[in-house]
């Protein structure tokens, strides 16, 4: 009996070791991808901050005209852009952002624009109407795609097909911490700073309406790209952490199993000796 169990334990150790090799390799791949993604996030952050600040400055400074982008309408239809990953094995990354988005969407007439394979799969399985499934690869989406999507969304918003646009993504706070978030893109929300009235007037070249018509799609595209960069970095960070934990667990299990294996082996030897001694 002891012989069978040492063999079993040996097999388990072997399979655990190969699992550990895989998780270790995945961790290293994620770590190297994370470095790139992190550099890109840090590079692009000032852009979104400026874009956001400029837009909210304009919104708060602007008193004399009303752009459709600024006025909240009675919400009948909403669009949620949801950014998730293309692959699993990233800890809670995909489920956290999807859960949050679904919670926000409750009781609304929602169309979803999923980005990333996991998001597409999720909303297809839950039979949520989707705008398009063409962005099933979050990793391949580039700036141009983002601006294309933004233009389409703005057109839909202006034509009254949708009344609000939100985006669900994951904030890359640090390598160890990522928080999912949902943000309203359209209509524009006045910044908290907007409370204090700005006295100065702004010149719009060529005209305020034209400026808004040209700038808002850029803004939406920029925000989209920013959210995508954040999400990608968050995905790699989450995967790295998850795989690190998996490798550690594998180590622990191997140590545990090795102990059991040695005990079983020793027990078998002792038993054999006892049998020999008893027999002679």
């Amino acid at each position: 009996m002891a012989g069978v169990s040492t063999k079993e334990i040996k097999n388990r150790i072997r399979s655990m070791e190969s699992t550990k090799q895989i998780t270790k390799a995945m961790e290293m791949v994620a770590a190297s991808k994370l470095r790139h993604a992190q550099a890109r996030v840090l590079n692009s952050r000032p852009y979104f901050e400026s874009l956001y600040n400029v837009i909210s400055d304009i919104v708060s400074a602007n008193s004399e005209f009303s752009s459709p982008y600024l006025i909240p309408r009675a919400v009948k239809k909403s669009v949620y852009v949801v950014i998730a990953g293309d692959r699993g094995l990233a800890g809670g990354y995909n489920s956290n952002v999807l859960k949050l988005a679904v919670a926000e969407m409750k009781d609304k007439d929602v169309t979803v624009l999923p980005i990333g394979k996991k998001a597409v799969d999720y909303f297809r399985a839950h039979k949520v109407p989707m705008l398009t499934e063409q962005y099933g690869a979050a990793a391949e989406m580039n700036v141009g795609d983002c601006f294309g999507v933004a233009k389409q969304l703005c057109r839909m918003y202006l034509s009254g097909q949708v009344d609000e646009i939100h985006i669900g993504y994951t904030n890359f706070v640090s390598v160890l911490s990522q928080t999912p978030a949902v943000m309203q893109m359209l209509p524009l929300v006045a910044h908290p700073r907007a409370k204090e009235e700005r006295q100065t007037d702004i010149m719009y070249e060529p005209g305020s309406e034209e400026v808004f018509a040209a700038i808002i799609p850029e803004y939406v595209g920029g925000i989209l790209y920013g959210a995508l960069c954040e999400s990608r970095a968050a995905e790699q960070a989450a995967r790295r952490t998850a795989m690190d934990a998996a490798t550690q667990n594998a180590d622990e299990m191997i140590a545990d199993l090795s102990l059991k294996f040695n005990q079983a082996r020793q027990a078998a030897i002792t038993q054999e000796i006892t049998e020999i001694v008893a027999g002679s």
Binding site: I202, M203, E205, P206, E210, V211, I215
Partner: peptide
């Protein structure tokens, strides 16, 4: 270059936004 042509900015420019 703005959408309507070249735009020159020097110190003390009026507040302005242009695509």
């Amino acid at each position: 270059r703005s959408t309507t042509g070249d735009l020159g900015i020097m110190a003390g420019h009026i507040n302005c936004v242009a695509p």
